[in-house]
């Protein structure tokens, strides 16, 4: 039982990373209509910048984390304005944006590889909280608690923003129809800029926390989060923050318990089978209202 609870906590912490990343991915899809393949690189870059902030600039943990998050947001903003804005002006389809995002992914990935010397780096000990708490005999690492707390705070914040604020209404309006939103007095460009930054920053947040907890800061960091984050968004629903959060956590728990009680070889198979089932049976996810349009 003790082992089960420990693995459950491990699963929730891992799933929180997937969910956090998925939230950024979902915002871009539901508001900007872009299935952004470059989203994973924002996580990698967030972690790389935060590592430099901690290791080279000797910033404390919170400041390093914030630096990484802001850097990822800015990169996402630049990519959006340089690569996606011209497509938006021409009214290009989702396929065009997807192809452009793949190009951005390859470029940012290569640059991240160069920045890390194609090595896997890690945050030096002492640059992040490493206290081990105990709940009875069950160990609770500080970083796992921080990751879970981060997901709760970001989910709540985004839920309030998208459902209970004027900006959130504007984001949903732009996601539905940019022209109609403009007629209604919304400045779509402003909404796009805010959304792109928020999405990048959220994914960057996942990247920094993931880089610390897995001791792996490399250009490949975002790739793992990308696939799992995408699965969380599909299962949870593209336009529902709560769904993505729940689905991400569920995926993490499923992965860990599969490894513990079945086989690590089946882990990814089960995750992607679930993704496939949702795409076929319920493409709008658990809570979402948006569907993929069929070609």
């Amino acid at each position: 039982m003790e082992l089960f609870i420990e693995q459950l906590i491990n699963g929730v912490a891992l799933g929180s990373l997937y969910a956090l990343f998925g939230l950024g991915f979902g915002i871009v899809f539901s508001t900007l209509g872009i299935l952004n393949a470059a989203q994973g690189t924002y996580a990698s870059w967030g972690a790389i910048v935060a590592l430099n902030a901690a290791d080279q600039w000797k910033l404390p943990f919170a400041a390093s984390l914030l630096t990484g998050v802001v850097a990822a947001g800015l990169i996402a903003l630049i990519v959006d304005q340089v690569a996606f804005q011209p497509l938006r002006k021409r009214g290009t389809s989702m396929l065009g944006a997807l192809i452009t995002s793949i190009a951005c992914w390859i470029i940012l990935d290569s640059l991240a590889g160069t920045a890390t010397g194609h090595n896997s780096l890690s945050f030096p000990r002492g640059t992040y909280p490493s206290t081990m708490f105990h709940l009875g005999t069950i160990p609770l690492p500080a970083m796992q608690l921080i990751t879970i707390a981060a997901l709760l705070v970001v989910t709540l914040g985004l839920q309030l923003l998208t459902r209970h604020s004027r900006l959130g209404s504007a984001m949903r309006a732009v996601g539905w129809d940019q022209t109609a939103a403009s007629i209604g007095g919304v400045n779509p460009r402003y909404v796009v800029v805010i959304t792109a930054f928020l999405a990048g920053a959220t994914s960057g947040f996942a990247g920094v926390l993931g880089g610390i907890t897995t001791q792996n800061v490399s250009f490949m960091l975002g790739e793992g989060l990308m696939l799992k984050g995408f699965a969380a968004v599909v299962v949870g629903g593209y336009d529902d923050v709560r769904g993505t959060a729940l689905a991400g956590v569920a995926l993490g728990v499923l992965e860990v318990l599969t490894s513990q009680y079945l086989s690590s070889g089946l882990r990814d198979g089960i995750t992607y089978s679930l993704l496939l089932i949702f795409l076929l049976v319920r493409p709008r996810g658990l809570f979402g209202s948006l569907n993929f349009s069929r070609a």
Binding site: L3, Q7, N10, P141, T214, N216, M220, S259, S264, G265
Partner: peptide, 19 residues
């Protein structure tokens, strides 16, 4: 305890091994 070469998170594997 089996892991995969492309894995990045080993917390669950470590918990399983220590268990």
């Amino acid at each position: 305890v089996s892991v995969l070469t492309k894995d990045t998170d080993f917390t669950a594997a470590a918990t399983q091994a220590m268990g």
